[in-house]
Write a protein that binds this DNA or RNA. Structure first.
Lengths: 166, 166
DNA sequence: AAAGATTGAGTTCTCAATCTTC
DNA sequence: GAAGATTGAGAACTCAATCTTT
C-alpha cells in the first residue's frame, strides 16, 4: 500500500499531474464534440435521437431480439425511470412493443417492432459513416485495437468500483 | 482501396469491421459507466451536477475568471439556449454572476461568485479522486499520454468536419 | 444582415414514492 | 423484504422564435 498522509479521516487528495489533467480535458472535450456531431447527424438524417438509436441497437443485437427493461438499464446505464419513460414514448411512436414474460410476471420483454427495425436500418448507414469519418478514419488499426483494450479495462474498473461501493 | 458497390448515387456504406465495432461499443459503454459513476459521486458528495462542475471549471480556469456565454458554449459544446438557461439557474443559486461588458453591449461576462469558487473547491477533491480511481489508476503513464494524443486528434477532426459541414 | 443572447413552449430526464411479483 | 417496473412532480434540455447590438 502507498504511504499517504491521512489527517484525521479526511481523504488525502492526489491531484492529477499535468499530463493527466491534459489527458482528461482532452477526453472530455473530445466526447462532447463527438456526441454533439453524432446527435446532429442522426437527428437531421433520421429524425432519431442517440438515445433511441442506442435502445434499438441493444434490442436488435440481443438474442431473440428482446430484453427486459432492467437488462436495458444495465447496458445503457440510465436511471431506471428514464428507461421506463423512454420506452413508453418509443412504444407510443410504434418503435417498440411489449411481450408477456411467462417466467416472471413482474415485467415484460421489450421488442423492436418492424417499424423499429426499419428505423434503425434506415438510420444505421449514416450513423456508421459519421462514426467512421469522425473517429476511426483518424486512427491506425493499432490505435483502434488499443482503444478497445483501454475502454474495456476502464469499464470493468468502474463496474467493480460500483459493485463495491453501491 | 476497398471495392464498394455504389448503386446510383446512394453513398456506399463502409460498415465497421469486427475490431472497430467492438472498439466503438467498448468506448460507448465505458463512457456511459464512467459518467454515471462520476455523476453519482458528485451529486452525493457535493450536491452538484457534472454540468455545474464543468461550467465552474471553465470559468475558474479562464484568464480573469470570466467568460462570455458564447465562449462557454464553444468550450462545452452545449446548445446555446442550454447555456443560457443553465446560467440563469446557477445565478439564481448564487454560483455565478454577470458583469457588464464594456466593449460589446450585446452580452455580459459570466463570473464565478465567491460561493461558486467555494463550491468547486469543495467538490474538486472528491471528483478528482474518483477520476483517478476509476480512470487513471487503470492506465500506465504511456497510455495516459496516448489518451491525450488520440483524444486531441479526434476532437480536432470533429471540429474540422463541423466547420466544413455546418 | 450577422453575432450574441434570451425566452417560452414542449420534450426529456431525475428523484422519490409507489406498486406488484418473487 | 428484495427485485423489477412504473408513476408523477419538478428540473433540465431542445427547438424555434425573438430581441438587441454590431
Amino acid at each position: 500500500m502507498d504511504h499517504v498522509d491521512d489527517r484525521g479521516g479526511a481523504a488525502p487528495v492526489r491531484w492529477l499531474d499535468e499530463t493527466e489533467h491534459r489527458a482528461w480535458r482532452a477526453y472530455v472535450t473530445m466526447h462532447g464534440r463527438l456526441t454533439a456531431a453524432l446527435h446532429r447527424q442522426l437527428q437531421a438524417d433520421a429524425g432519431m435521437s442517440i438515445a433511441d438509436y442506442e435502445v434499438l441497437v441493444h434490442l436488435t443485437e440481443a438474442p431473440g431480439g428482446r430484453l427486459r427493461p432492467y437488462e436495458l438499464q444495465r447496458r445503457l446505464q440510465w436511471e431506471q425511470s428514464r428507461v421506463s419513460h423512454h420506452l413508453v414514448r418509443m412504444q407510443r411512436r410504434g418503435l417498440v412493443d411489449r411481450e408477456a414474460c411467462r417466467d416472471d410476471g413482474r415485467g415484460a420483454f421489450v421488442v423492436a417492432t418492424a417499424a423499429g427495425r426499419a428505423a434503425i436500418e434506415a438510420a444505421a448507414p449514416g450513423h456508421v459513416a459519421a462514426v467512421r469519418r469522425l473517429f476511426f478514419d483518424g486512427l491506425t488499426p493499432e490505435e483502434v485495437a488499443l482503444v478497445e483494450r483501454l475502454a474495456s479495462r476502464v469499464a470493468e474498473r468502474v463496474d467493480a468500483a460500483a459493485g463495491a461501493a453501491g
